[in-house]
């Protein structure tokens, strides 16, 4: 670990300083996490009178449950779509904004604020836009293209709606990072390539994009984490996992099975699966970031 050459030698003060953080993490992070892991190996009757240790039964039941497998597929499709839409738009708008230097702050101001909007509110806005009877988009689709659009009843429409609501909210976040990444690329490199006769398009793919890859990686990870977890608000406020479980992503299913359905063992096992996923993502991210920031300290 990186350390300072000069430090204080007071004995008890450092413990006192870190105490609040440790107390909070023990109480609200580690203890519940351990409880969750223990519960995932148990079954209990609905009233919680008796619990039995059942080894991996909850996990076996989980992975042989077609609803759970469907939820995994839904989650992967959902976060993949959110990532593609919000990263493509964010990168495109950022590289456009980077071309008009004089107006970068203005364009940034006009593109940044969806970040401040809660996922649930974003969901509500899009529900109104795409509402089968009142939404302007639904009416347009029906009048001009003859498409019977109904996200409240049709699975594919509902999925599209939550993808739009989540991706829209996330575009500005990705935009901010891509713009910062683009502005950090030395201008001399681009100019040298231009003198050599490389077209703007070619310059983007051979110079800008490779230099942007750390940002790209980071943004992808953050978008996936966002769509795995924070999109809970969108689902809860708009579709409640429906219609027919078509938007029941993993994090919503944990909540529904555990908090509403009180199926404690299964919900705990689902939590542990999610925990493994985020551990995997975090480890991956830090392995990569560590290499990137070695020059620091």
């Amino acid at each position: 670990m990186i350390r300072k050459r000069s430090y204080f030698k007071t004995r008890s003060l450092p413990y006192l300083l870190i105490l609040p953080q440790i107390l909070i993490t023990l109480t609200f992070f580690y203890w519940p996490a351990i409880q969750g892991v223990i519960t995932s190996f148990q079954v209990s009757d609905p009233f919680g009178f008796r619990t039995k240790f059942v080894w991996f039964d909850n996990y076996i039941a989980l992975f042989s449950d077609p609803l759970y497998l469907k939820s995994i597929a839904t989650t992967l499709f959902f976060s993949g779509s959110v990532a593609i839409v919000s990263i493509a738009f964010g990168l495109f708008l950022a590289s456009m904004a980077n071309r008009v230097l004089k107006l970068t702050t203005l364009t940034r101001t006009l593109l940044i604020w969806p970040y401040a909007i809660a996922p649930a509110i974003s969901g509500i806005l899009w529900l109104f836009l795409l509402h089968p009877s009142y939404g302007v988009v639904a009416i347009g689709l029906e009048n001009w293209f003859g498409i019977d659009w109904n996200p409240l009843l049709k699975s594919s429409n509902a999925m599209l709606m939550i993808v739009m609501a989540s991706a829209w909210k996330n575009i500005s976040y990705n935009f901010v990072f891509f713009l910062a990444g683009l502005q950090a690329i030395p201008k001399s490199l681009i100019e040298a390539a231009a003198i050599d006769g490389a077209s703007p398009f070619r310059r983007f793919w051979t110079i800008t994009f490779p230099l942007l890859s750390p940002t790209f990686f980071f943004v992808t990870v953050m978008t996936i984490i966002f769509s795995f977890f924070e999109s809970f608000g969108v689902i809860h406020a708009v579709t409640q996992g429906g219609p027919g479980g078509s938007t029941n992503i993993l994090v919503y299913k944990v909540y529904q099975d555990g908090f509403i359905g009180l199926n404690l063992g299964s919900s705990a096992a689902q939590s542990v699966v999610l925990m493994f996923m985020i551990i995997l993502i975090t480890v991956l991210q830090f392995k990569y970031v560590e290499r990137k920031v070695q020059y620091m300290g």
């Binding site: 300072k4 705990a268 985020i278």
Partner: peptide, 29 residues
């Protein structure tokens, strides 16, 4: 950063690992 004590790396690791425990993975407990 500014102190050197025995449990420093433990404390640091404890704080670091909370990254992997968002509220969504430990709802009920």
């Amino acid at each position: 950063v500014y102190f050197d004590y025995r449990l420093r790396s433990v404390a640091f690791a404890a704080v670091f690992c909370t990254l992997m425990l968002p509220v969504e993975v430990r709802i009920l407990p």
